[in-house]
Computed example of a mutant assay.
Amino acid sequence: MKITLKNNVRTTMASRDITMWKDLAERLKNNQDYSITRTSLARQIEQETPAYSLSLIEALCNELQCLPNDLFRIEITDATADDIRNLTRREKPFEFGHIIEADSATSKESPATNADSASQQQDDFDDEDELVGGRVSHQNAGSIRKREK
């Protein structure tokens, strides 16, 4: 089986009604704290096989509200029907990666009440997560980095 990744950023941009490089560059700078000129952005995205940095992929995913696999079109050749079936039947978008829902809400409730409600909320989501995978929320890359420090 051979897997080839093709650039799909333009399609993802268009599906979000973003047609100009200038608009995306401004949104990345203002919303994601990722500075890039429209020329550099266009040059990177228009390449047949771009070399994206992880920080650019992160900023694009946060701004376009997508997962990294939406930025690429995957072409599979030399694969059996079973290989294809096994890949497409995955319940979660990543085999080894994880999507983690961050608790961004700060509550003024007592710790015991907060823990009870978090436990109940987790119980409510367990079955659904098994079916559809984790949740993704629109996050600013800068705020995520600050929270990790």
Rank of each mutant, 00 (worst) to 15 (best):
E58N: 14
A59V: 12
A59R: 03
A59I: 14
L60F: 05
L60G: 00
L60M: 11
N62D: 15
N62A: 12
N62L: 06
N62S: 14
N62H: 12
E63H: 07
E63M: 06
L64G: 00
Q65A: 12
Q65E: 14
C66W: 04
L67D: 01
L67W: 01
L67T: 00
L67S: 03
P68F: 04
P68N: 08
P68W: 03
N69H: 15
N69T: 07
N69M: 13
N69E: 13
D70K: 00
D70F: 02
D70V: 02
L71S: 01
L71V: 03
L71R: 01
F72C: 03
F72Q: 02
F72T: 02
R73A: 15
R73Y: 12
R73S: 14
R73G: 08
I74T: 15
I74R: 07
E75H: 10
E75S: 10
E75A: 08
I76Q: 05
I76Y: 05
I76G: 03
T77N: 13
T77E: 14
T77R: 15
T77D: 13
D78S: 13
D78V: 08
D78W: 05
A79W: 01
A79G: 07
A79R: 01
A79M: 04
A79I: 02
A79L: 03
A79F: 01
A79Q: 03
T80D: 06
T80V: 08
T80I: 08
T80K: 06
T80M: 06
A81S: 11
A81C: 06
D82W: 09
D82M: 10
D83F: 03
D83E: 12
D83T: 05
D83S: 09
I84G: 03
I84Y: 03
I84N: 04
R85G: 08
R85L: 14
R85Y: 13
N86F: 11
N86H: 12
N86I: 11
L87Y: 02
L87P: 00
T88W: 01
T88H: 03
T88R: 10
R89F: 08
R89P: 01
R90C: 10
E91F: 09
E91V: 08
E91C: 08
E91R: 13
K92A: 07
P93I: 00
P93E: 07
P93A: 09
F94G: 02
F94M: 04
F94Q: 04
F94T: 02
F94H: 06
E95S: 12
E95M: 11
F96V: 09
G97P: 00
H98W: 06
H98R: 14
H98F: 07
I99V: 14
I99W: 00
I99Q: 05
I100H: 05
E101Q: 14
E101D: 12
E101F: 08
E101M: 11
E101A: 13
E101R: 14
A102Y: 14
D103T: 12
S104D: 11
S104L: 15
A105W: 09
A105I: 10
S107Y: 09
S107A: 09
S107I: 04
S107M: 08
S107Q: 09
S107R: 06
K108W: 10
E109S: 14
E109Y: 11
S110L: 11
S110E: 12
